[in-house]
Structure formats: structure tokens, C-alpha cells
């Protein structure tokens, strides 16, 4: 239970999609001129992320990752299909977006009217594919956590676009230097908001998260170096260089 709460707040505030990893910036900048449209797109992103991340988690777990095909029988146990993940993830996302559009149109015309135009846009929103790819690279452990990750990343994105839309509605009345108007000032404000969000960094672990991560990375690195050394005796000097780093 605790890990769910931790992941939830971490994805919303610390690893916020817009402010920490810059995912979905294109639609974030293009659709944030009015609060109402921003709310529509934000809701659509939450919805699609919460559906596609768990689906892609299942795909990753039972089809793509190294040894994932073991459930077919022992002779399939050493297949590694992870190079196919881009194409499968994007296909899942595009299909799901189409499906969601059809279902929503059929059962809830009111919701369709408010989300409708945004849904096709979402298939090519980097936040959606990014959510699935980060889910894969961060090694999310269970289906429930994957759902949680999708949902909370979506909420984080929603918060970000809502905030910038509200600011942009107000900034229309300010005297911004002419060359900065529109896009330029939006970039700079987003930068300042991102600095603000960085202060959430110490929220969960009291600030010692970063060193732990560094340690983990170095451990991984040395392991990699070892494997290279075992397989190839000629590249020892190159390996030493990596260790010294």
C-alpha cells in the first residue's frame, strides 16, 4: 500500500511529466491558451495514460522482455523481443485511442463533445508513449503499480497544463517585451515553474534519494564493464577508461 502512495506522489510532483522530463510539450504549448480546452486535453491524457500503461505493462511482461515468452514452454524461454517494444507500444496506443474514441462516442456523447477533438491528437502525444517507455525502463513491478503510474503521471500532466493555461490567460494583460510575446514568455514561465517543482525533490525520502541513485548507476556500470571484459580480451584499455570515470 505504501509503495502505491509513494509512486502516486512521486509521479505527480517529483517526476512530473512536463517539468522533469518534458514529455508532451508540443500539445502543452499548443493547447494551453484557454483553461477550458486545457482541462479537456488534460482529462483525455489522464484517461488514455491510465488505460495504455497497464496494457503495455502486460505486453512487456508476457511478450517482450528477456525470457517473457517462458509461459509458452521452456523452449521459448530465451527469446528477447524487447527491440520490438517501440512498434508494439505505439500500435497499442493508436488502437486504444481509436477504440476509446468509438466507445466514448457511443455511450457518452456529452463526454465525447468535450474530449472528442483531443483524442486523435493524443495518439502522437509524447507523454503517452513516454509513459509506457518509462514504465518499461523503470521496471514497474506489478499491474496495479503500472495502473497507478499511468494515472498519476496523467494527473501530473493535467496539473501542469491547467497551471500554464491559467497563467497564460492572465498574462494577456501584462506588458511583455514584444519579441517574447506568445511562445517565448511561455517557455520562460514553464522554466520558472519547473524550478518551483524541483523543490518537491526531497519530499519523499528526506533528500537522500539522489546519492542512492548514483550508487545504483555505478554498480550497473561496473557490471557491464565486467561482462565486456569477459567476452572480449582486446578492449581492456577501453574498459579501464570507463572505470576511471
Amino acid at each position: 500500500m505504501l509503495e502505491h502512495v509513494e509512486l502516486f506522489f512521486k509521479s505527480i510532483f517529483i517526476d512530473n511529466m512536463v517539468f522533469a522530463t518534458f514529455l508532451g510539450m508540443c500539445s502543452y504549448l499548443a493547447v494551453s491558451k484557454k483553461v477550458t480546452t486545457a482541462v479537456g486535453l488534460g482529462a483525455a491524457v489522464i484517461f488514455v495514460l491510465a488505460v495504455t500503461v497497464p496494457l503495455n505493462w502486460l505486453l512487456d511482461q508476457y511478450l517482450l522482455r528477456n525470457g517473457a515468452l517462458a509461459w509458452l514452454g521452456p523452449e521459448y524461454a530465451d527469446y528477447d523481443l524487447s527491440f520490438l517494444s517501440f512498434i508494439l507500444f505505439i500500435a497499442t496506443i493508436a488502437t486504444m485511442v481509436q477504440l476509446v474514441e468509438i466507445v466514448v462516442e457511443k455511450f457518452s456523447p456529452a463526454l465525447y463533445n468535450s474530449l472528442g477533438i483531443f483524442l486523435p491528437l493524443i495518439a502522437v502525444n509524447c507523454a503517452i508513449l513516454g509513459g509506457s517507455l518509462f514504465m518499461q525502463s523503470r521496471d514497474i513491478q506489478s499491474l496495479g503499480l503500472a495502473f497507478n503510474y499511468g494515472l498519476s503521471s496523467g494527473i501530473g500532466w493535467f496539473l501542469a497544463i491547467l497551471a500554464i493555461a491559467a497563467i497564460r490567460e492572465k498574462i494577456r494583460y501584462s506588458n511583455v517585451p514584444a519579441p517574447l510575446r506568445g511562445l517565448g514568455i511561455t517557455f520562460i514561465i514553464t522554466g520558472l515553474m519547473a524550478i518551483g517543482f524541483m523543490s518537491f525533490g526531497g519530499m519523499l525520502t528526506g533528500g537522500d534519494e539522489a546519492p542512492a541513485e548514483v550508487e545504483k548507476n555505478t554498480v550497473q556500470k561496473t557490471e557491464e564493464v565486467k561482462t565486456i571484459k569477459e567476452t572480449d580480451g582486446n578492449s581492456v584499455s577501453y574498459n579501464n577508461a570507463i572505470i576511471n570515470e
Binding site: V176, P179, R181, L183, I185, A194
Partner: peptide, 28 residues
């Protein structure tokens, strides 16, 4: 090196480019 500065650097590039070419300036 932190992520927010990337946004601000892009903002500055836009600023420089648009002050050199006034035709690109946006309406608010």
C-alpha cells in the same frame, strides 16, 4: 545542467531571433 534551464535557454533563443526579425512577433 538541470532541466528548467533548457526551457529558459529556448526562451532566450526565441527572444533573440524575434528581436532580429520583427515579422515573427506574435500577437499576445
Amino acid at each position: 545542467l538541470l532541466s528548467p534551464m533548457a526551457l529558459i535557454v529556448v526562451g532566450i533563443i526565441i527572444w533573440v531571433q524575434r528581436s532580429r526579425n520583427k515579422a515573427l512577433i506574435e500577437e499576445n
